[in-house]
Simulated assay, not measured.
Amino acid sequence: MRDYCIRAAGPDDLDGARAVMLDTVYRDFGTGYVPRWHADIVDPVAAYLAPERHVLLVALAPDGGEVVATAALDSRGPAHPPNPRRLAERYPSGETAQLRRVYVRPEHRRRGLARRLVRELLEFAAADGRYRSVYLHTDPAVPGAEPFWRSLGKVVLDERKDPATGQGIIHFEIPMGR
């Protein structure tokens, strides 16, 4: 397997990281850029680089060094609304490491890259010492997303089975593995 370089994003990585993230929301999600959902993509410095307990990782391709994948972690739990109140209460901000933007360019998928990125995010969360849980949500319409996250964690709410929630996403808790 070709070896990818995974590192915390720096200023020189931000354009490439934005490109991976924006391409994903347009191609895989079909939503395009939605400011209330994707503001962190436009300003990753404020979302992930400046806050002490947040991180944005990038994976660089072995042949050329361009950013081909991203993964982020922040200390914001799921907000209510739009998420159900019980999730916001179970995963409060400050105590919850939320995984975000785990995106891999299609031509670099199926090489274990997302799993490596998640492992590094979990190590970051454990080293912080103040996170008590790791949470994420995913859109099951994205090819491969649901089985990938099921292989790493447990479903805490599948909105497809709870019509009152209305978003159709799946919420997961991932063991931190301290």
Score class of each variant (00 low, 15 high):
138 T>D: 01
145 A>K: 01
111 R>K: 10
58 V>Y: 14
149 W>A: 02
152 L>E: 05
140 P>C: 09
71 A>G: 14
125 A>G: 03
128 D>Y: 07
64 G>P: 01
117 L>N: 04
140 P>M: 09
86 R>Y: 11
126 A>C: 10
103 Y>C: 13
165 T>V: 15
104 V>D: 08
110 R>W: 04
131 Y>C: 03
133 S>R: 15
173 E>G: 00
90 R>Y: 02
50 A>E: 15
121 L>I: 08
119 R>K: 10
131 Y>N: 06
48 Y>I: 03
44 P>T: 15
98 Q>K: 10
59 A>R: 12
140 P>A: 07
171 H>M: 07
87 L>Q: 06
113 L>S: 03
58 V>E: 14
59 A>F: 13
150 R>F: 01
55 V>F: 04
79 A>N: 06
108 H>T: 07
121 L>H: 06
68 V>I: 14
144 G>H: 12
49 L>F: 06
158 D>Q: 01
169 I>V: 15
111 R>I: 01
87 L>E: 08
165 T>H: 14
161 K>I: 00
86 R>A: 10
141 A>C: 01
103 Y>D: 09
68 V>M: 08
102 V>R: 06
154 K>D: 11
49 L>W: 07
162 D>F: 04
118 V>R: 09
57 L>A: 10
90 R>D: 05
79 A>V: 14
119 R>M: 02
105 R>G: 04
50 A>Y: 03
101 R>F: 09
162 D>G: 00
107 E>P: 00
107 E>A: 13
154 K>S: 14
163 P>K: 15
84 P>D: 12
95 E>T: 00
53 R>K: 11
45 V>Y: 13
97 A>L: 05
43 D>I: 10
46 A>L: 10
147 P>E: 14
160 R>D: 08
130 R>S: 11
146 E>L: 15
154 K>M: 07
100 R>N: 06
54 H>E: 08
140 P>T: 06
78 P>H: 14
110 R>S: 12
135 Y>K: 04
73 L>G: 05
169 I>P: 02
56 L>R: 11
143 P>R: 15
139 D>R: 04
156 V>S: 02
89 E>M: 05
106 P>I: 13
175 P>K: 08
149 W>F: 12
84 P>A: 15
144 G>Y: 12
